[in-house]
Amino acid sequence: MEPLSLDQAAHIVDAALARGRELDLHPLTVAVLDHGGALVACKRENGSGLLRPDIAQAKAWGVLGMGLGGRALAARAATAPAFFDALTAISGGRIAPVPGGVLIRDAERHVLGAVGISGDTSDNDEICALAAVESAGLTPDAG
């Protein structure tokens, strides 16, 4: 399994931002983490809020930590809120179990990393993440 490259991460960030502009979304922040949770690339559009980089990274970090896309995490959080409260505490607040966090998989379904997007609705954030990962020739997993 090849690790997620800086070029791939940069492509995902730029493609997500481009998709957001195509859809006329609010300003976005996009963060890409490698399989170990380290930040590889992040961009924040002008007008994207102060907390958006932290939120985008929490969306990505949460899906990596749990091995599920943000949509699946949101569904689980809805049925087990006490568990996700505990996860939030254990992780130091680094988990945001909502759509907009997408696992990045290779052709063999290995997890290479994750992308998290914040700035518009979680559903729109996820739309941009899915399109960006696919445009990089990788497989998105939103859960």
Score class of each variant (00 low, 15 high):
N124G: 09
L87R: 04
I55S: 03
M66F: 03
L112P: 04
V111F: 07
P27W: 12
A77V: 03
I90T: 09
F84D: 01
G36P: 05
D85Y: 01
M1E: 13
T29S: 10
D54T: 08
D14Y: 07
G143I: 05
P3F: 13
L25M: 07
V30P: 02
D123P: 00
A31I: 06
D123H: 15
V133S: 06
P81R: 13
L4D: 06
R76N: 11
V40G: 03
G101A: 12
P97L: 04
A89I: 05
R21W: 09
L23N: 10
A60P: 02
S122Q: 14
V133R: 03
H26F: 13
A131W: 02
A131I: 09
A89D: 06
V30C: 09
S5H: 14
L23W: 07
I127Y: 10
D34A: 08
L28P: 03
D34W: 00
L68E: 04
G69D: 00
G143F: 10
L64N: 07
M66S: 05
G36H: 08
H26I: 03
D106H: 04
A15E: 15
S135K: 01
R94S: 12
A136Y: 10
S48W: 08
D34K: 04
M1S: 15
T79I: 13
R44D: 04
G70P: 08
A96W: 05
E22K: 11
G119T: 14
E126C: 07
L68K: 13
